[in-house]
């Protein structure tokens, strides 16, 4: 009987195969743009400019990728990859550090203006950098931080999502732990290092995955403040590789760069899938 019911709910036999076929079809459709870009990054420009281009990889893999990595169009892709890496790690680590500290202060202390600060941070949840680009650009220019890592990183750290996450999490830490620490005469920072930080490990890791991707995939902000090709990040640098006039774009190199640009975040997502999903769900709550 139990088996019969299960048979009604889950697919068996022909139905099961159909379900798999449907899923595989879905995956293939979703995958197609990436596959096509990969194929185009392994053939020559001549194969592409006389459509239709082949749908199976060619033999120019090494040629195109080394052209992209070591000479690029404006600047070698290795330089852009390095800039992106600094920016993504800077944003992820920066946000996590300042949020851990401020959440700890808000949860474990009573001090003047605490509520005011709390709301001040809360308000920053509301305004993505896209909305305040012109004045933020002026501030960064005023500090002389155009074309610098500081200019790339700091304005994007000003957001409250991580603070909220940590605050929520700290509130679930049993009071007995803080009580015990206080009775033992542990100073607040000792409690932070020995208890709070180790307990937050999973949250920190999950958040790191999300923030790394967020930082890596930034486009508008680096586009505005990095006028020097040496400071371009890879995601915004790709657009700069297109010729401005009517010329044919160097598609194999551009698409090789696109593939290179998606490898780090894809590795992070796939290899830390569980953390990634957790971070995604947490940061949207």
């Amino acid at each position: 009987m139990a088996n019969d019911v299960q048979g009604m709910v889950e697919k068996r036999g022909a139905g099961l195969w159909l379900t798999h076929v449907f899923m595989i079809f879905g995956v293939l459709v979703i995958f197609f743009p990436i596959w096509l870009a990969f194929v185009a990054s392994t053939v020559s420009q001549a194969d592409i400019v006389s459509p239709p281009m082949p749908l199976l990889p060619g033999d120019k893999f090494l040629e195109n990728y080394s052209a992209a990595l070591f000479s690029g169009v404006n600047v070698p892709v290795t330089t852009m990859l390095f800039n992106s890496l600094i920016m993504a790690i800077g944003i992820a680590v920066g946000k996590i550090v300042i949020s851990l500290l401020s959440a700890f202060a808000i949860v474990y202390f009573r001090f003047p203006c605490r509520t005011m600060f709390f709301w001040m941070i809360f308000l920053t949840l509301m305004l993505p950098v896209e909305v305040r680009i012109v004045p933020t650009y002026e501030v960064v220019a005023g500090f002389g931080m155009l074309n610098s890592y500081g200019g790339l990183i700091f304005p994007l750290i000003a957001s409250a999502t991580a603070t909220f996450l940590f605050r929520q999490f700290f509130l679930t830490i049993p009071d007995e732990l803080a009580e015990a620490a206080r009775v033992d005469g542990a100073r607040p920072m000792r409690f932070f290092w020995d208890i709070v930080l180790p307990m937050s490990r999973t949250n920190i890791a999950a958040l790191f995955v999300i923030l790394f991707i967020y930082g890596w995939n930034q486009y508008l902000w680096p586009l505005l403040i990095t006028t020097d090709p040496e400071m371009n990040t890879i995601v915004m640098g790709i657009k700069q590789m297109f010729p401005s006039g009517d010329d044919f774009a160097n598609w194999p190199v551009i698409l090789a760069t696109s593939i290179l640009a998606m490898i780090p975040p894809v590795i992070v997502v796939i290899s830390m899938q569980r953390l990634f999903i957790r971070g995604l769900v947490d940061s949207e709550k």
Binding site: L101, A105, V139, F154
Partner: peptide, 24 residues
Amino acid sequence: VTFRGWLLPFLLIAPQVAISAIFF
């Protein structure tokens, strides 16, 4: 259960408040 003192929490919250003030 909270800890006493006000200088330490101010220092802890300062980086985020400063960045929010300047860049937000």
